[in-house]
Amino acid sequence: MTMDIELTVNGEQVRESVEPRMSLADFLRERLQLTGTHLGCEMGACGACLVLLGGKPVHACLVLAVQASGETVETVEGLSERGAIADLQAAFHDRNALQCGFCTTGMVVNAHALLGETPVPARDEIRDALSGNYCRCTGYEAIVDAIAETARKRASDAEASA
């Protein structure tokens, strides 16, 4: 069985025919070559595949592509290209908040969503938000630093321009 699906990915209308068993993550990676969405565990434990579905972070490995039909998806590529996470990316770089980089895209997508909802989160809130994102390299401290630093900078920039 294949089904026609139609969805918006990074602002572009996409029409494809897919098998129902294809996950949204495989759809993004294999059909659209958006390989910034990483597949680690394929069971919702590691958080490497987080994308925004209807503006909210979800595991692309736990959503079937057919379930996303009619929805709006944004991946790390979309966020990056429209400059929405430029400061987060720079802060991750400055703080050495990545080593192998495998978890980083999921981390950044999640951090972007967190700062959208909670502009200046406490460190505990950052840790709670990242509790479903595994990083096996950094020990998390630098990642939390980078997100906290970005939040502070955004807040002071907003104040300066107010």
Binding site: P20, S23, L62, L64, Q67
Partner: peptide, 26 residues
């Protein structure tokens, strides 16, 4: 039946069950 899918979908990926069809309730 498929609701949020966050137990059903991993159970399929782990091949714990193999239904002929999913019926999406969403």
């Amino acid at each position: 039946y498929l609701a949020g899918g966050h137990s059903v979908v991993p159970s399929l990926a782990l091949r714990l069950q193999a239904p002929a069809a999913l019926i999406d309730l969403s």
